[in-house]
Nucleic acid binder design. Structure first.
Length: 191
DNA sequence: TAGGCCATCTGGTCCT
DNA sequence: AGGACCAGATGGCCTA
């Protein structure tokens, strides 16, 4: 599309249309020679007005060219953003139904995932510092059956998002403990 | 068919 | 001045 305007200067001439309707005639085969573009002396005043018209046309072309370039950059920017989102999806645990997470779901899931991992590490550190024998280990926690089927799309209460705790995945309606247990099933060898 | 999701366009704003 | 970023608008596609 940019090519449409790339050679606009080379195609233009000093002749400018008598009216708005004639604007396109400048680059046309009809305006074959530069001489044909030169107005007669009697039209000098009109020439000035035409000059202004040319500037307006040129400004419009420049604006359109910049817009098209900006559109292209914006498109690429969004593509890069989507690529990053896809990369994020790849490092997140896969879901049984294999349906692609939406953008918002991916971000929320990643948020929960990071929280679950950090929570797992915290619990592990806690366990390591204890000497009580009957305390359940993090591995035990991970081996515990999921109360809500972990990743199944069960309908349940959603936990409100609060500082320091992740928002529940709307799609899977996981509470934080559910999420931790569920995530543990994906990182069984973390210890 | 309504609603959700997405890609794209667009104009505004900020930054270099 | 030009590019990056952002948010609103719009239209297409898909699904319940």
């Amino acid at each position: 599309m940019d090519a449409l305007f790339a050679d606009i200067d080379s195609n233009s001439c000093d002749f400018f249309p008598h009216s708005e309707e004639d604007e396109d005639s400048c680059g046309s085969p009809r305006a074959s020679s530069p001489d044909s573009c030169a107005p007669p002396p009697a039209q000098q005043q009109k020439k000035r007005r035409r000059g202004r018209a040319r500037n307006e046309v040129t400004v419009q072309v420049v604006k359109k060219t910049r817009r098209l370039k900006a559109n292209d950059r914006e498109r690429n920017r969004m593509h890069n953003l989507n690529d990053a989102l896809d990369a994020l999806r790849r490092v997140l645990p896969a879901f049984p139904d294999e349906t692609k997470l939406t953008k918002i779901e991916t971000l929320r899931f990643a948020h929960n995932y990071i929280w679950a991992l950090s929570e797992t590490i915290r619990i592990a550190d806690l366990q390591a510092g204890r000497s009580i024998r009957d305390t359940r280990s993090p591995a035990d926690i991970c081996e515990a059956p999921s109360p809500s089927g972990s990743w199944s799309s069960s309908s349940g209460s959603s936990c409100a998002s609060s500082p320091g705790s992740p928002a529940t995945l709307d799609r899977f309606s996981l509470t934080q403990p559910d999420a931790l247990l569920g995530f543990c099933s994906f990182v069984p060898n973390i210890y």
